[in-house]
Design a protein around this nucleic acid. Structure first.
Length: 737
DNA sequence: GACTTTCACTAA
DNA sequence: TAGTGAAAGTCC
C-alpha cells in the first residue's frame, strides 16, 4: 500500500522491506533463525539453503511460520544459496518438529539428521556420453566397423562402455569423435540400484503365513495408518510375510523403508530381498562411503530408489512418496539412539507413519514389552505366526543347575554340557557355546594386595583381552597393555583373572577337545569382512565348536548346529536395568533359536544358578505369553509406570552426590513421578561416559508433560548444569496414537 | 614466558 | 555444533 504522506526523504532512505523467512540451522537454538531472502530469489518452506552463521556457512532448511518480528532487522543476514534439490515436504517437516518436541531436542539438530549428506543437495553431475550422429567415417577400418554396428541403434553410450562392448580400445572411439561421427551428449547418472519387481518371484506362502500376509495386505489396500506386530518364532516365515506387504506397496507406486538393527551384518538379508524382488534395495547406514551416501539420499528424495533397507538413521531420509515402514527385530536396543537426539527409531517410525497416514509393520520373534502392551491395549494389531516354516523343529531345551552340577575347579563348563558337546562333535555336528562376555576375564586383581584394575576414565572394571595382550574398558574404550606387576604394591606375576570371557571358554574347550576345530566369534576380533567369512565357514562345516558373544544371536543361520550351550544364562539379570529380565529373555530366545533349523533333533542347555527364575522357566517351557504377562504385572508392582507409558529422563552427573541432588530437584519439579533410579557407570550410555559423566539418573514417569517441564526448567539454568543433563524420552505411544 | 588445555559464550 | 577469546594449567 502506498503512503502518500511519506516524505521524499523517507522514500529515499527508508530501507526497503526485505522478505524474511525462518531457517532451521544445525545448532542447539530453541527456534528457527530469521534470514532475509535476497532480491530475485524465491524460497518455499522445506527448501534446503546455505546461510551464514557466525564466521561460517552452514546448511539449513527453510521452515514454516511467519516472520519473527522480535529479531533486530540489523542483525538479519541473507540466504547465500538455495540448492536445486527437492524440498522437504510438509509431512516430513511436521515429523521433524514432532520429534524435536517429543525428545526435547533443538529442532535444528533433528533437521540435521535429515540432511546428513553434505554434497547431495546439488544435482548429480551429468555423465558424458556419445551418440552416433549419422555420418560415415573417412576410412572404415574393421575396428571402426565394429563400433558403428554397436552404436547403429542411435542410443547413447559412455565412451568406455562402447569401447568395451565393441571390443576395441577407447582411442578408436576418440578418432571417430574427432571426425564428428559421434556427437557428445549428456546422460543422467545411472541409478544406484535397479527397481525392484514385485512380481519377480512368486510367493509360496501357505497356512498361517498366508493368512497373516492377507491380513496385512487388507489394511494396505484399505490405506491409512495402522500398526501391525508380526510375532513368530525364528524360522516361522516373518520375512516372507512382510515381503508381500512390500510387493503390494510397490504395486501402489509407493516407496518402502525397511529398518534393521545392524545393517552391516545383513548381506544375507539383501540376498533374500534380491531373490524375491530381482534387485537389491538401496542401503543406508553409518559406514556408507560419502559418495554413495549422497547418491542414496538424492535418489530417495527424487523417488528413483523404491526400497531402502537401513539402520535407524534411514528413518530421516526425505522419501518422495513413502507408503510403508517395516521395523524388523523391533525389540532390538540398536534402534535407540543415545546420542544428541535421544530417540527410538521403532517408535518414531510409528509417528512418521501416523503423520503421513500409512501402515507400519513391526516384526520380532521376541517383541518388546511395550509392543505387547500396545497389542493388549488394542493400539497395535497382533499377527501371530505360531509354527516354524517347512517343519523345522524347535530345539529341546533344558536347564543345568550349576549348584548341582558344578564345573571342575578352575573351569566354567558343567560336566553335563561337556558331555553333550563331546557327543555332538563325535556325530560330526556343530556345537555353539554362548557367553555374553567379550575378552578373557571381566576382572583382574592382585593376589597380594587385592588391587582391582579399574578404568581411570570411568571407573568400571578393565577387561583382560588375552588375544590382544590388553586390558580394556568396555564402557569408554580405554585400553593399556596387560601389566605383569601390580601398580599398587609392585608385586610381579601375582595378578589373577576372575570370571570367564569367551577367550577363556575357548581355552577350556581346547583343553577338553584338543582335536576339535574351535572358533571364537566376538565383535572385537576382526572387522565385518572377517566376520562374514567366519560365518560362511561355520555354515560350510569348517568348525566343530563355536564360542560366541551377542553377535551369534543375530539372524545368521547355522544349518549344522545341533547343540547350543549357554554358559552363564544369568548374566544381565541383576544389573539394575529395569528391562533386565526382558532383555535376557529376548537374548536367550534368540540364541537358542539358532539351533534346530536342520530338521534334525537338536538340544539347548542353559547353565544357571537360578533355575527357578521366571526367565529360565519361560525359556525352557517355551511359554512366552506367560512370561510377558508376568513381566508386565511385575513392573507395575515395582512402581514402574504401566508399560507402554514409560518415560525416562537421563540426568547425568559426575558424582553420586550430584546425581542425588538432581534427583531431589526432579522430585520437587515433578511430584507425580514414580521411580527414580541412580545408575552407575556401567548403565550409562556410551555418549555420556565420553562426556565424563559417571552416573545417570533414570526416571520413570507417568506424565510426559511434567517431565518436559522439569527438563525445560533445567535447560534454562546455566551452561554447566545444562551440560550435565541429557534427555531421553523413551516410549509414550499415547502421544502418537 | 611460551605453549597447551579448558571453559564459557555466541550465532539471525 | 563449531569457532572464539580469556583463563588456567604445564613445561623448561
Amino acid at each position: 500500500m502506498k503512503d502518500d504522506s511519506k516524505s521524499l526523504f523517507g522514500e529515499l532512505f527508508e530501507t526497503p522491506r526485505r522478505k524474511v523467512v525462518p531457517v532451521l540451522v544445525p545448532m542447539p537454538a530453541p527456534t528457527a533463525y530469521s534470514y532475509a531472502v535476497p532480491d530475485g530469489l524465491t524460497v518455499e518452506p522445506g527448501a534446503i539453503v546455505q546461510v551464514p552463521l557466525g564466521p561460517r556457512q552452514v546448511i539449513g532448511v527453510v521452515w514454516d511460520g511467519g516472520e519473527d518480528t522480535s529479531v533486530d532487522p540489523k542483525k538479519l543476514r541473507e540466504i547465500t544459496k538455495v540448492f536445486d534439490c527437492p524440498p522437504l515436504d510438509k509431512d516430513m517437516r511436521t515429523f521433524l518438529d514432532w520429534v524435536a518436541a517429543y525428545t526435547l531436542s533443538p529442532p535444528g539438530y533433528v533437521a540435521r539428521m535429515a540432511l546428513r549428506a553434505p554434497a547431495a543437495f546439488d544435482p548429480e553431475p551429468m555423465i558424458e556420453g556419445l551418440r552416433y550422429a549419422g555420418y560415415e567415417p573417412e576410412r572404415l577400418t574393421p575396428a571402426r566397423q565394429k563400433v558403428l554396428e554397436m552404436a547403429a541403434d542411435g542410443l547413447s553410450w559412455t565412451k568406455s562402455g562402447l569401447a568395451h562392448a565393441s571390443g576395441v580400445s577407447t582411442s578408436v572411439i576418440d578418432g571417430l569423435v574427432k571426425q564428428g561421427v559421434f556427437e557428445q551428449v549428456f546422460l543422467p547418472p545411472p541409478p544406484l540400484v535397479a527397481a525392484p519387481d514385485p512380481d519377480y518371484a512368486e510367493n509360496r506362502l501357505a497356512g498361517p503365513q498366508k493368512e497373516a500376509a492377507e491380513e496385512i495386505l487388507d489394511s494396505l489396500r484399505k490405506g491409512g495408518f495402522t500398526v501391525s506386530l508380526i510375532d513368530g518364532v525364528t524360522g516361522s516365515g516373518k520375512t516372507e510375510v512382510y515381503f508381500e506387504a512390500i510387493a503390494e506397496t510397490l504395486k501402489q507406486g509407493k516407496q518402502v523403508l525397511i529398518l534393521l538393527p545392524e545393517i552391516a551384518l545383513t548381506a544375507n538379508f539383501l540376498e533374500r530381498f534380491q531373490d524375491r524382488f530381482g534387485s537389491k534395495p538401496g542401503e543406508w547406514h553409518s559406514d556408507l562411503a560419502t559418495r554413495t551416501r549422497e547418491k542414496v539420499w538424492r535418489q530417495v528424495a527424487t523417488g528413483e530408489i523404491r526400497v531402502v533397507a537401513g539402520a535407524r538413521s534411514a528413518l530421516f531420509l526425505p522419501f518422495e512418496n513413502l507408503g510403508l515402514i517395516i521395523v524388523d527385530e523391533e525389540h532390538d536396543p540398536a534402534f535407540k539412539q543415545e546420542d544428541r537426539v535421544f530417540y527410538n527409531a521403532r517408535d518414531m517410525a510409528v509417528v512418521r507413519a501416523r503423520i503421513a497416514n500409512f501402515p507400519v509393520v513391526l516384526v520380532s520373534a521376541t517383541p518388546s514389552v511395550e509392543s505387547q502392551v500396545n497389542c493388549i491395549a488394542g493400539r497395535y494389531t497382533r499377527i501371530h505366526l505360531p509354527t516354524r516354516f517347512a517343519d523345522a523343529a524347535m530345539p529341546d531345551l533344558h536347564l543345568i543347575d550349576m549348584r548341582r552340577a558344578p564345573p571342575e575347579r578352575g573351569g566354567f563348563l558343567s560336566p553335563i554340557l561337556l558331555r553333550s558337546v563331546g557327543k555332538a562333535v563325535e556325530r560330526g555336528e556343530q556345537a555353539l557355546l554362548f557367553l555374553n562376555r567379550r575378552g578373557y576375564a571381566p576382572l583382574t586383581l592382585c593376589r597380594v594386595c587385592g588391587h582391582r584394575f579399574q578404568c581411570p576414565q570411568c571407573s568400571s572394571w578393565l577387561v583382560e583381552h588375552r588375544f590382544r595382550g590388553q586390558i580394556q574398558c568396555h564402557q569408554c574404550g580405554y585400553h593399556e597393555p596387560t601389566p605383569n606387576s601390580c601398580p599398587e604394591c609392585g608385586t610381579l606375576d601375582h595378578l589373577v583373572a576372575c570370571g570367564p570371557g569367551v577367550e577363556r571358554i575357548a581355552e577350556e574347550v581346547e583343553k577338553h577337545f584338543p582335536d576339535a576345530r574351535t572358533l571364537v566369534l566376538s565383535s572385537d576380533i576382526g572387522g565385518v569382512k572377517r566376520l562374514r567369512l567366519e560365518l560362511e565357514a561355520i555354515a560350510n562345516g569348517e568348525a566343530d565348536i563355536v564360542i560366541g558373544t551377542q553377535l551369534v544371536a543375530k539372524g545368521h543361520n547355522f544349518p549344522l548346529m545341533t547343540l547350543v550351550g549357554i554358559i552363564d544364562a544369568d548374566i544381565g539379570l541383576s544389573n539394575g536395568d529395569p528391562r533386565a529380565a526382558e532383555r535376557t529373555f529376548q537374548l536367550l530366545s534368540q540364541v537358542t533359536g539358532r539351533a534346530g533349523r536342520t530338521g534334525r533333533k537338536s538340544l539347548g542347555l542353559l547353565q544357571t544358578f537360578q533355575p527357578q527364575h521366571p526367565v529360565m522357566q519361560a525359556i525352557v517351557s517355551g511359554d512366552a505369553a506367560a512370561f510377558y504377562e508376568r513381566e508386565i504385572t511385575e513392573r507395575e508392582r515395582a512402581q514402574l509406570p504401566p508399560y507402554g507409558r514409560l518415560v525416562s529422563i537421563i540426568v547425568s552427573a559426575d558424582t553420586r552426590a550430584e546425581a542425588e541432588g538432581h534427583a531431589r530437584g526432579l522430585r520437587q519439579a515433578a511430584p507425580h513421578e514414580s521411580g527414580i533410579m541412580i545408575l552407575g557407570p556401567a548403565e550409562a550410555p556410551l555418549a555420556l561416559i565420553r562426556g565424563r559423566h559417571r552416573f545417570r539418573l533414570l526416571v520413570h514417569g507417568r506424565r510426559n508433560s511434567d517431565m518436559q517441564a522439569f527438563v525445560r526448567s533445567m535447560l534454562e539454568r546455566g551452561p554447566k548444569e545444562r551440560r550435565s543433563i541429557q534427555v531421553q524420552v523413551d516410549v509414550d505411544p499415547q502421544s502418537f496414537l
